[in-house]
Computed example of a mutant assay.
Amino acid sequence: MSRPTVLAWGQAVAGALCGVAVGVALFRRWHDVAVAEAWLNARLVSFTGLADTSSVGAAVIFPLDERWVGFLVSTGCSVAMLLIPPFVLAALLVGFRRVTFPRAAVAVALAVVLLVVVNQVRLAAVVAAMRMWGFEVGYQRSHVLIGSAISTIGLILVAILFLLLVGRAGRPRRISGAH
């Protein structure tokens, strides 16, 4: 292999390793992300006046029918696992020099913010449904049906936006009349 080819593969491997390192860190620290999400959701829901919520660890709790109820932001409910693909993909694209680092950083930052927002809306919908339909019925309707719809639509939109951002390569344009 020529020196430029070895350098290109070295950059690709370095990019992949960086993306995988961030992915592993998110995977290993998902509970810390879930605790931050519960804290953020409790503040969001209280701020909107939907319920007087608090967070305890990775749980969001609030009074309902003269008792405290809530939900736990578990592995499946946390945004942590959804954050891994944008980091890994962006690192690979930068490593293979398909995307510049600034473009990848913007795409990842936007994906992270939007995924967190989508998940916060989903968690707030759980609180709203539990207040509207009661603990058991509200949780089941919002977690299974409403929450899944919010997550699916949000994830698809974020993925499309991410791909549009990293797919817009800054390639030189052809000069008209050039062959």
Rank of each mutant, 00 (worst) to 15 (best):
S54M: 13
L89S: 04
A42G: 13
T152P: 06
F101E: 12
V73N: 00
L123A: 12
A38E: 09
S2K: 14
Q120G: 06
A16G: 15
V126G: 08
I84N: 08
L110E: 05
G95M: 04
L110V: 09
V99E: 03
G76Y: 05
G95Y: 03
M132K: 04
V99Y: 05
L82K: 06
A58Y: 01
E66R: 14
D32C: 04
G95L: 03
T100I: 02
A25R: 04
V33I: 03
L157F: 12
G138N: 05
V117L: 14
I61S: 11
A124S: 14
R168A: 14
I84F: 03
I175T: 13
S148Y: 02
L72M: 15
I175D: 00
M130F: 01
F47N: 06
N41W: 04
L114A: 14
A80Y: 05
N119H: 13
I153M: 13
R168G: 14
A91S: 11
L83A: 11
W9I: 07
V33K: 01
A8Q: 15
L40R: 00
L157V: 14
A36G: 12
S176L: 13
L50V: 01
A111W: 10
T100F: 02
V94D: 08
I175N: 07
A169T: 15
L115I: 11
V88H: 08
G49L: 02
L7I: 15
N119V: 13
R174Y: 12
M130G: 05
I146C: 05
S46K: 04
A58R: 10
W68N: 13
V117F: 10
R3K: 10
A58H: 12
V20I: 13
G177W: 02
D32K: 05
M132A: 15
A51S: 02
